[in-house]
Amino acid sequence: MRAVLLILVLALAPVAANAVEPSEVLADPVLETRARDISENLRCLVCQNQSIDESDAQLARDLRVLVRERLLAGSSDNEVMDYVVSRYGDFVLLNPPFKGSTYVLWLGPAAIFGLGLFGVFVFFRRRAQHDTSTVMPLSAEEDKRLQRLLDEAGK
């Protein structure tokens, strides 16, 4: 049982896939971790759905080196990010910023979920109302008609 569990865990664990070459890695592990964090959020301009941390493209490699050089030179994480964004635009960020042009992107799903929730609420409320109407007592006229039909049947 344990063996099966272990195999499952290993098979399903996200494998750390990155393209960082040994020669690029910084000696300082703290700086390297920061560089990795930044790289994971920057889009590779060649293979657009990979981060530069995962991409083997030359341009991604040069960008990784640039990120590390800037960190070595004492830039903060934000300064490094801002520099790359100033060259390539927001497109280069895999995590789009929350601002005017992206409100729809960020709030859209929540809005649609809210709408759906509202729809479900309305649906169940209506059904509940409908259910009570079926057990409403017969009106005097209906009562009379029913009696007449029963009388006819009884003849």
Binding site: L45, V46, L59, D62, L63, R87, Y88
Partner: peptide, 13 residues
């Protein structure tokens, strides 16, 4: 050779 100017110009290819 190291994409210094290319990145500064925002070159993608």
């Amino acid at each position: 050779p190291k994409s210094k100017a290319a990145i500064a110009f925002g070159v993608t290819g």
